[in-house]
Structures are given as structure tokens and as C-alpha cells.
Amino acid sequence: MTKTRTRQIILHDPTLRDGQHAVRHQLDAAQLTAYATAADAAGVPVIEVGHGNGLGASSLQIGRARLDDRTMLTTVRAALTHSRLGVFMAPGWGTSTDLRTAVSLGADVVRIAAHCTEADITERHLGVVRELGAEAHGVLLMTHMASPDELAHQCARMVDFGAQAVGLLDSAGHYLPSDVQTRITALTQAVDVPVLFHGHNNLGLAVANSLAAVDAGATIIDATARGFGAGAGNTQLEVLAAVLERTGHPTGIDFRRLLEAADIAETHLMDTPPTIDSVSLVSGLAGVFSGFKKPVLAAARATGVDPVDLFFELGARQAVAGQEDLITEAAQHLHRTRQHTPKERTAPHA
């Protein structure tokens, strides 16, 4: 694989999917249309939409979305003229039926996701995506929990199952640039399809990690407007576009219009842009799924425990995305044990 500095990078934009975590999956149709129209005008190659955990994931467990999958897809599809429409689905949360519906509504790029060591659950669904004629990506979640060799092996399996691009989500925002470098290098050596990376900013390293991924050979990078996303937010799209410009990687995006889209995201989608607050920082340090932030704050408030303690407890339990049921139980556990070791700390009010 060529590693020249002029390699074209495809920016994949899950603002309207991962951003849902920041607003408890409550984006409405007008918000989707406003951002999708602006991002399309800027020439963003892929715009991903959905519930924060993807197709089929709207639930009491993970959070119920304001709009159903069908409405979200139809709305964004109607706003796009050039950009391709992306969706995300993890087997166990969504099913083949959800994939068929999504592709029939115009999804062009379909991400099939599994936790870091579980690639074999994607076999069936990658096959379905290929059969439907959409572009199939295989992605691994919570990837800091597995070794570079293991991740490379899992990605190679997804290529065998039909994935046309594979890569890693730093779901907890736990990586340092050197971690990314090692892992993406292992992937590019193991597969001959494009490699992708999706960062989170809990340790303030999302852009640096994305650049490390590009340097190691990744050609598809996920990033969201203003970093709108779970926890401390994602890699900030407009910043990454500027950084890639400076490092000589064309993205094909109209930068001025991308700035306009980012402004629209800020005014239309969020109360405030994501920041690395204390809780998000701890979440990244503890290696817990960034999407847990809102439910962790709610459980901490309800039980009167410190959300920082709760994130460390969830990290110790190695809770993974989809296990939101552990949050309340861990909070109750801390509440009970705290009765014996009183600590003068109160939960912040969000």
C-alpha cells in the first residue's frame, strides 16, 4: 500500500448518528434536514444517520429515538444530492430485516459492527449487504480491549465475509496516537481493502489519533461537525479537514462550505459543542463506552453516587456498549458500599 502524503482521504460523517448520543437520540426531522443539506453542499462524501447505536437499537436499554429508522433515512435521503447515505448496524441490536429496509430506502454505505473479538457475528449481515448491492464496511467496537494482532485477525475475517472496508472504532476514546499507529499498521498489513478509523476525544487526542491512522495507512476517517458525538465527542470534522489539508491529503470537500455546515450543526443540533468535562475524561481513562455518559449521569443523580466513581466501577467491570443495564446496578452497588465508607462528594447536576 502506498503511503505517500498525497493519498486521498475519504471523510465519513456520522454527525447524525453518533451525535444522537449527546442528545439522547432526540434529533428531529428538521435538524436532520438542516445538517444533511449543508454537509451535502460541502461535498462530504458519506453522511451517516440513525439512532446512536444504529439500526434497530432504539430501546429502553440504549435510549429510545425520537424518530424511527425509516423516518430518519427517508428524511436524510431527500436532503442529499451528491453525498452518499450511510447507516450503522450491530447484529444483536439490529437484524437483516433492518438492513433490507435501510438499503431499500437508499442507504449506500452500510457499516456492520461487532465488539472487538466478535467479528464472526458479522458474517451473515455483511453477506446481506453485499447481496443488496450496497458498500459493506466491517467495523469493530471497543477496540482498546483487544491486541493489535487480534484486531487484525478479526478484520481479515470480515474481509473474508465480504467487507469492502474494515476498521476500528475507539468507542471509549482511550487510544494514544502510538496505539492507533500500531493497530492501523497491523490492519493494513493484514487486509487489502481500505482501512478506516473512528476516534473519540475523551483524552483530547481524536484529531491526533486520526492523523496517526492516516499516517499508518488508513484512508477512511470518521469525523463529525463540531465533534458532535458520544461523551467528549468525536473527531471534529472541520478541524480534521483543515489538518489534512495542511498535511497534503486531499479530501474533496469544499472547506468554506464545511465551515458553514459546522456552524449549522452548532446552532441546530446541540445546546453546546462537546467538551472534555471531568466525567468524559474519566470515561476515556477507564475505557468505558462514550455513549454511557448520559445514562451514567442519570444513574449517578438517582443514587447520589459520584459519576467519576461510577465510570471507574464500570471500567473495572469491563462493561461494553449495549450493556447499559449494568449502569444502574453498578450505581446501586456503589451506593450500598458507600454507606460503609462515607465520602463527601456530591454528583454534579446536568
Partner: peptide
């Protein structure tokens, strides 16, 4: 119904949450 496979080590017990 939602299903997760956990990569945690040591492997956690089978867990089912109901609402």
C-alpha cells in the same frame, strides 16, 4: 430482545436484564 457478546476477561457470567 437485544443480545450482546462480551469480550471482557475474565469472562463474565451470563446476564439478562428485563424491563
Amino acid at each position: 430482545v437485544l443480545a450482546n457478546l462480551s469480550p471482557a476477561r475474565p469472562a463474565p457470567p451470563f446476564r439478562v436484564a428485563m424491563t
